[in-house]
Amino acid sequence: MLYIPGNNPAMLLQGGVYGADGLLLDLEDAVALNQKDAARILVRNLIKTNNFYGCEVTVRLNHLDTPFGMADLEEIVPLQPDAIRYPKTESVEDLKRLISIVEEIEKKHNIENPKMTIHAMIETAMGVQNVFEIAAYSKRVDCITIGGQDLTADMNVVKTKEGRELDFARNRIVMAAKANKIDVIDTVYADVDDDEGLRQETEMIKGLGYSGKAVINPRQIGVIHDVYNPTEEEIRKAVRIIKEFKKNKEAGIGVFAIDGKMIDAPVVARAQYVLEVADIEL
């Protein structure tokens, strides 16, 4: 997911062309205090008019404790982007407050079947502590994300390239998401010139179970797709497993072997996932 500052018209206009899966139009940290109104108006107008080429559009709002959060909601909710991202979600009370305001605005605008979902951003120690309840609170919350910069600031530690200071939070957050069958997106990798570091971190979070990663520069998109896209070898293997699975299923066999290795339901499920990502239907 590509972060785009909400007050940068050129980047907003071109956001859809870089091949990101989703765009995060940012009204929060990327926008200076004296630009908040301009960013809100710009993002509002572009959501109405711009072609984002099928990217999922998410707007990161300012927190309701700031002077800008309410105004952001009033402008953005009626437009029903794919999602809103709520920063510094610390508890279900935060979500309760947010969702009640969102629903009120939707009612006011006669939006009967709202499609817009909510991404809860976990970026405080308290948020990490409460993440299981946050992830489970509402069906509208279909994604949780980790905000590494703010979280390390809250922990009073330095965010390092190795990222060990985030180990616990990353593990706890991903488990909360998996327990509730929702998506989970990792934090940004700040050094835009270090492709190798980005690759290593992406491989690591993919291994943990993260669904994707936020980026701050379009140049980082290719590396993340490289890591997440299945290799030809993985696709070939998955095709073979699914074909064998179908054949065995017809014969009433649930567990079988390929090249001496046992293939059971979890292996079949993983193979099916690989084919889904590769957009292959057998």
């Binding site: 071109q14 062309v17 870089y18 091949g19 010139d193 379009p218």
Partner: peptide
């Protein structure tokens, strides 16, 4: 170039 647009 480092320009994301040119690279794209």
């Amino acid at each position: 170039t480092k320009s994301p647009m040119d690279l794209r």
